[in-house]
């Protein structure tokens, strides 16, 4: 099995082949290993990864339909306006592999890992990147993108190397799976990213649900409960009826607040 390993300099990708120093056969190099044993002559070799760049890809574990359903779940959640589930519309959905540089370096004798976007982007969540969980596999010519667009790096690795501390252990380019969603709500278009590995949602700017009606309902119930009890004790127990009224009024009004417009509430 052949593995293609590349280096990037001045934005040009070079392929590097690791070969057995004894018999010259190509060496299989697995992610996360520094040693490789030649399958022909059995000689173990140390793989120097400081210069080479390994290409990895994190497969999608969330389908496009599932990403729509995740979006729908999010719109029904407490962060979004309550009519959002019913009225928000997905206008575009793109399945993409987004490139990220991953630097493993030694800083003051300690291993540090840094991730940086390998492509200029305004997408939410792409600047404070953490590689999401997933089974990283080597990315090579045989890798199937499965209908996803592979976004290629447009930022040179050198532009980050200068700012990083320490000395390199290895560096890699990780393609990670994302769904880029555009949706319309209340006449405005918004963007969001759903990570295609764990389903995490990243947004920078999204419609918010106001808490005013929640506070108002509880304040009303509180006032009725307070006045009813106080007057019930001080003047006549008839005022305790206000407490009961508070519970009923609260229940009815709170239900109106919670109820989703299309009856989608449970």
């Amino acid at each position: 099995m052949a593995f293609n390993i590349y280096t990037i300099s001045a934005n040009i990708i070079h392929m590097v082949n690791f070969t057995c120093p004894k018999c010259g056969a190509p060496l299989p190099v697995k992610p996360g290993t520094q040693l490789s044993v030649c399958s022909y002559c059995g000689t173990p070799s140390y793989i120097d990864r400081r210069e080479a760049i390994f290409f990895y890809i994190l497969p999608f574990s969330i389908t496009e339909d599932a990403s729509r359903a995740i979006f729908k779940r999010w719109t029904a959640g407490p962060a979004c306006p309550k009519d959002m589930e019913a009225t928000a519309e997905i206008t575009a959905i793109k399945k993409e592999y987004f490139p990220v540089f991953r630097f493993r370096r030694t800083v003051d004798g300690k291993e540090k890992i840094a991730a940086r976007p390998a492509r200029g982007t305004l997408l939410p969540g792409m600047h404070s990147i953490e590689i999401p969980p997933g089974d990283m596999v080597i990315f090579d010519s045989s890798t199937k993108a499965g209908g996803a667009e592979v976004l290629h790096p447009d930022i040179a690795i050198d532009s980050y190397v200068g700012d990083l501390e320490g000395t390199p252990i290895d560096q890699s380019l990780v393609y990670f799976p994302i769904y880029e969603l555009k949706y319309r709500y209340g006449g405005t278009e918004y963007a969001m990213v759903i990570d295609g590995s764990s389903g995490r949602i990243s947004v920078t700017n999204s419609p918010k649900r106001s808490s005013v009606s929640y506070v108002a309902v509880m304040a009303l119930a509180f006032v009725l409960g307070f006045i009813g009890t106080l007057l019930g004790f001080i003047i006549t127990p008839i005022f305790f009826v206000l407490v009961i009224a508070g519970i009923f009024a609260g229940k009815i009004l709170a239900h109106k607040v919670v109820k989703k417009p299309d009856g989608g509430s449970s």
């Binding site: 509180f222 009725l224 307070f226 407490v243 709170a254 239900h255 449970s266």
Partner: peptide, 25 residues
């Protein structure tokens, strides 16, 4: 559960008012 949300609001609001009033009394 929307039902338990509104119940929490109704009971929590009224009860807290009643408790405060009772303590003051």
């Amino acid at each position: 559960n929307a039902g338990s949300q509104s119940t929490a609001a109704a009971l929590g609001g009224t009860l807290s008012g009643a408790v405060l009033a009772a303590f003051i009394f």
